[in-house]
Nucleic acid binder design. Structure first.
Length: 196
DNA sequence: TGCCCGATTAACT
DNA sequence: GTTAATCGGGCAA
């Protein structure tokens, strides 16, 4: 499908809603190779994790709360949460049937605004700019202000891309449902948070 | 109201 | 391999 946009993969296509109204694990896999930008700063998504409302590791597992409310709202919106009191992590809301799900964007291959990312991160190595969910949030300037914003309009922008060969494994940093293979990455990428 | 802990990172030993 | 930094959600009291 290299380069060609299906109605599901083209974010500018009105039918795109179908892309996000699927199981988060399917969306997480299909997002690898896409690009995301915040105010023009961003790059290719090379690592994601899926979180489902019936998944004990998901913020949405116990039902809506003020923090996770966005996960129960419309798909293709940004869910941003504070991690360990320090980092901002970026998720894309997606769910099918019952609401409450999302995809954590864990790592990017930077392609635009490298200088801005370097300034925000305090270092210049492209491989260290967004190779982790907290780093990615910092590099893209994501904060609580982005929570609940649609991915289809500024400051967000998305571009579909060919899906590379994938590697799949268990998610990182969780204590429940640790064996679910809901972490996806680009095989051989040098921009992953950790190897699979 | 208080306490515990986390979808992490960076700087240690 | 280990640990501090740091803060808000969720739950017990």
């Amino acid at each position: 499908m290299s380069g060609l946009l299906s109605e599901h993969s083209d974010p500018s296509n009105p039918a795109r809603q179908g892309f996000w109204a699927r199981h988060p694990a399917e969306v997480a896999a299909d997002l690898i190779g896409w690009s995301v930008f915040v105010d023009g700063v961003g790059g290719r998504i090379v690592e994601t994790e899926a979180y489902h409302h019936e998944d004990p590791a998901s913020h949405s597992y116990a039902g809506p709360t003020p923090r996770n409310a966005v996960m129960f709202g419309p798909q293709a919106h940004a869910y941003v949460y504070r991690s360990y009191g320090i980092h901002w992590c970026l998720n894309f809301v997606c769910w099918q049937g019952a609401p409450g799900g999302g995809v954590l964007i864990r790592a990017l291959e930077p392609t635009a605004g490298l200088d801005i990312m370097a300034e925000r991160r305090g270092l210049a190595d492209p491989r260290a700019l967004a190779s982790g969910p907290g780093k990615l949030g910092q590099a893209l300037g994501v904060t609580r202000a982005h929570n609940g914003l649609a991915l289809t309009s500024p400051p967000f922008a998305m571009r579909s891309g060919p899906r590379p060969e994938l590697v799949i494994g268990p998610r990182i940093g969780i204590s429940k449902a640790v064996d679910l293979p809901w972490r996806f990455g680009e095989a051989g990428s040098r921009y992953l948070s950790r190897s699979f």
